[in-house]
Design a protein around this nucleic acid. Sequence first.
DNA 1: TAGATTGTTAATCGATTAACAATC
DNA 2: TAGATTGTTAATCGATTAACAATC
Lengths: 213, 213
Amino acid sequence: MKDEKAPGKPSIPDIVIGRLPVYLRTLRLLADDGRDVTSSQELGEHLGISSAQIRKDLSHFGEFGKQGTGYNIDFLCRQLQKILNVDTIWPVVLVGAGSLGTAIANYQEFESSGFRIVSVLDEDPQKIGQPIGNGLLIEDFADLSQLVKGSNVRIAVMAVPAYAAQRVASQLIDAGLNSILCYAPITLAVPSHVRVEYIDPVVHFQHMTYYLR
Amino acid sequence: MKDEKAPGKPSIPDIVIGRLPVYLRTLRLLADDGRDVTSSQELGEHLGISSAQIRKDLSHFGEFGKQGTGYNIDFLCRQLQKILNVDTIWPVVLVGAGSLGTAIANYQEFESSGFRIVSVLDEDPQKIGQPIGNGLLIEDFADLSQLVKGSNVRIAVMAVPAYAAQRVASQLIDAGLNSILCYAPITLAVPSHVRVEYIDPVVHFQHMTYYLR
DNA sequence: TAGATTGTTAATCGATTAACAATC
DNA sequence: TAGATTGTTAATCGATTAACAATC
């Protein structure tokens, strides 16, 4: 999944974009520790990457630091939030109210990071109508398009079994969503205007075991 | 997190290793569909990468295909499992029996992928002793080192709050574990012999929102 | 001022891809 | 055989890093 090159203005490498949320997360932890200022060197040590890379990454977007001093943490956080478009709250639809879906619905970090789960959908009649997460009720996945219509929801999280994932994804896309975070262990076939990110713990485990002998 | 270069024999790029589990996952889906043979081109189309990359990646490990025909799916699966060291079952310790920990304990895909959660640990006295997952009981995190001692557990999953994550990680490492899958939204400070992989949905969300205007 | 750190350039390093001989 | 696809080479492309002038 690469960034599409906007003809004319040089687009910023997708790999750079992918690091910004990690920078933001780290800066917030520093802020929580009461810190006001940091440097590319300190950040790099925290993250195990070079200070040059951090400065280079940030330089794609502007000048945020001060020579001799470093970066004001609050200021840089706000700038990164603007760059990443998380200076507002994005509504998110969660599909799948199983064990994993419930965990996602309960997760407290979304709200402070720019996201709010506004609907939880499932196909199981036993589950529809049951409470979940923070004051939500599980709704019928069949009502998806009605629910999305006229709302400004553009993001979905899928916590459904692998066998259902492709069908669910297609229906999400038909309903007008174009950003999907997929927890199912399958690579989805989607049109090019849709962006999918994947979370699969097995992929991480198997990556680690390569190095275990 | 890079691969350490073994002096002498040229080490295989970590980024290549990271793709192998995705290849394996895709091959298994094809096998489940009743397919016997595939090609680098077909795989590449499935995954949205070039056929050349797939052939190049595999070529680091040997020759697994047949000109004019492609790859026998079962054979390539077995080879990838060997390469990734998932031709046996790795025991895994899960720390954290909250909502996310419960979802992980319930997840059915681990067993067929080379992993088995053998212990679930928590610090909450209310939780210790309660059943979780597939016939397990939540145990006391304080008993970690006893539990690991003499066992062959080397992998842990952390599903604990961010504020507890660094302490838990350090204790896991003290107990002798060297591979950690961390669901807490924090970059851990660990010695160089320890490998950590991270799963943070917010990082993925924020990556996606950059492209939403 | 002296010391520290940025933003940026140019060099290095590494990954991806196109192309094709080999061969099933 | 003719067609297809591998494994590999060399070229291209892109990302990382070292170094340093600028400057706080």
